[in-house]
C-alpha cells in the first residue's frame, strides 16, 4: 500500500500504516496519527517526537528507546507513561518514521 490518505492528505505508507516519506509529515499529521492510536499529544510527547525527527534526519535511523533516553535525556520510565506498552513503535509511528532497526 504505497499511497493512502489521512484527513484528505495524500501520504506514502507501508502495509502497517507507518509513513515512508520523511517529508510527508508535519505536526498536524502527527496529531491525527497520535489520535488514531489513542494518544493526545502534550508538550512532553512533542519533545520526544521532535527529537526522533531531528535524530532521523542526522543519522538516517529511527532512534531506539535507549537512544531517546541517553541522547534526548527523557527517562525510559516516562516514555512508557507517554506512549504506553510499545513506546518505541508508537513514537516512530507518530513521528512519521520507520520502526527502529536496532535491538537495544
Amino acid at each position: 500500500m504505497p499511497v493512502a490518505t489521512i484527513n484528505d492528505r495524500v501520504v506514502n505508507v507501508d502495509d502497517e500504516g507507518f509513513l515512508t516519506d520523511y517529508d510527508d509529515w508535519d505536526e498536524d499529521l502527527a496529531k491525527v496519527l497520535a489520535s488514531q492510536i489513542g494518544i493526545a499529544l502534550t508538550e512532553d510527547h512533542w519533545k520526544a517526537i521532535h527529537f526522533l525527527r531531528r535524530d532521523y534526519k542526522e543519522t538516517g535511523e529511527t532512534a531506539t528507546l535507549r537512544r531517546v533516553t541517553t541522547v534526548a535525556g527523557i527517562p525510559t520510565k516516562d516514555l512508557f507513561t507517554l506512549f504506553p506498552k510499545k513506546p518505541a513503535k508508537k513514537m516512530a509511528y507518530i513521528a512519521g518514521l520507520p520502526k527502529p532497526r536496532g535491538c537495544v
Binding site: 500500500m1 499511497v3 493512502a4 490518505t5 489521512i6 484527513n7 484528505d8 501520504v11 505508507v13 502495509d15 502497517e16 500504516g17 507507518f18 488514531q36 492510536i37 506498552k85 510499545k86 513503535k89 508508537k90 509511528y93
Partner: peptide, 16 residues
C-alpha cells in the same frame, strides 16, 4: 487511488 478521508492503515499496537 483511495478516495476515503482516511485510507491509511493504522498499526495494531494492541497485545497480540
Amino acid at each position: 487511488m483511495a478516495t476515503d478521508v482516511n485510507s491509511a492503515p493504522v498499526p495494531n499496537f494492541e497485545d497480540s
